[in-house]
Design a protein around this nucleic acid. Structure first.
Lengths: 241, 241
DNA sequence: CGAAGTGTTGAAGCAAATCAATTTTCGTGG
DNA sequence: CCACGAAAATTGATTTGCTTCAACACTTCG
């Protein structure tokens, strides 16, 4: 499957061919934005729903002191703001991490898509999975030591990227700086660096450039107490393309 | 307003009288469970949606090592599992913290309720607010020191409880042990104790028994960098009944 | 009255932050 | 293609926030 939304939604819900075509049609017109650009800001009331086709983005909040926390990583196939139609205004920012290709889907097109029960179910499913991921991150931050938390994140990203065809047998591209990783994990830059070194020394994860290589997935999952059930995938879509 | 769902949903969406009556009718048949009892467990595929009428419950996950993280506090008017119909199986537990009064709403009744566009919108709204709260907790865990995190939680609970008529001018009941508070905040029991003492010494929050008294709401909100926008309430429902 | 659960206190240890340099990588223009 | 400057990664030293361990006090309730 080429289109990452189709790939992602199919991993959760069995879509009919016409649903796939409708999705593909709705996400045909893309645009590109550069790294660090803001996609939506806190307080905005966007008219379109934004979807990531290619690249990495993040939900983030910045505290008065300047500390930033990333609350979600948005990968190809993820939606930024399916919700904001109901909530009225954004309570956080969405920023591109890398150069991103995205589509803006007008609200009325979304309404049309929701006309198909299976598609409505699939979109509903995807927001619920986002929430489940958020819960798992909270568990990681609250109760896992930094190295296990990082290991857990690498496991999660492997599966999420694999379901949209962005991972191979044991590696994937993760173009985040250590500072950005720190904003995800709630750690300082320096400590991220040391945690990464430890995971490498333990033969679990290696990072060269932006490539993350899982050296021993079984041991890594065990170390992180990683259980993929919270991703709510059907069957064995957990493997690489 | 008596019924906590009606109160809560009205705080976000303007409900019509017939919507309120439908909600009240759907939540008429209640039952009670004792403290520490499990409402739903990980792996369950519940048939009914569970709503809290009275008492406190929590979403929680327990790690292999025995550490527990509470991912949400469920207050009167909150729903436990509006989502699970789509996700299939629960990926976490829901446990009563105190004695709870709850209602079990069969799936088909929910479908009926969703027939009203305003009600559908209101229920949708409530799940989105749950998610926003979760994001804010993640920010707190990741980037706020323990005392600010606790202060932030006390601010949030004040507003949430006030919107369902469970708070007075400057205090509310929070029947959690320090251990349970630690599971919410991701802290050890000992540290929770010390943080509470500090907040009291600073004249911000006092806890006697299960009563939480906000001694100076302005300073407390400032200390915690608390901004209630993420709760997405209409107007000034933020005050006590 | 005793026992279990909860709250409190002190001391010691550890994980992670902070501070401060230094090195490496990378993008850019000459 | 190389040189330069900026961003990112790395390292060491120090400090701090939080945990752990251990003991003890208070409350509640059977």
């Amino acid at each position: 499957v080429q289109n990452p939304f189709v790939a992602k939604l199919c991993a959760g819900i069995d879509l009919r061919d016409d649903d796939r075509r409708a999705l593909e049609a709705a996400s045909a017109r893309t645009r590109t934005i550069g790294p660090r650009e803001q996609i939506i800001g806190e307080g905005d009331r966007p008219n379109d729903v934004h979807l990531i086709i290619e690249g990495f983005a993040a939900r983030a909040k910045t505290l008065p002191g300047g500390d930033r926390q990333i609350m979600a990583l948005l990968l190809p196939g993820d939606s930024c703001d399916l919700h904001v139609a109901i909530l009225g205004e954004m309570d956080h920012d969405i920023v591109a991490i890398t150069k991103c290709t995205l589509v803006d889907i007008p609200r009325h097109v979304i309404e049309e898509l929701l006309g198909s029960p299976t598609l409505a179910r699939a979109l509903w499913w995807s927001t619920l999975v986002d929430e489940a991921v958020l819960r798992e991150w909270l568990v990681s931050m609250g109760r896992r030591p930094a190295d296990e938390q990082a290991a857990h994140l690498f496991c999660e990203l492997y599966i999420r990227l694999a379901t949209v065809g962005r991972a191979d047998e044991d590696s994937y591209d993760l173009p985040l700086t250590q500072e950005e990783l720190g904003d995800v994990l709630g750690l300082s830059i320096v400590h991220v660096n040391r945690v990464l070194q430890k995971l490498k020394a333990d033969g679990l994860v290696e990072r060269r450039g932006s490539r993350v290589r899982l050296l021993d997935r079984t041991r890594l999952a065990e170390f992180a107490a990683f259980n993929p059930n919270y991703l709510h995938l059907r069957g064995t879509n957990a493997g690489p393309a």
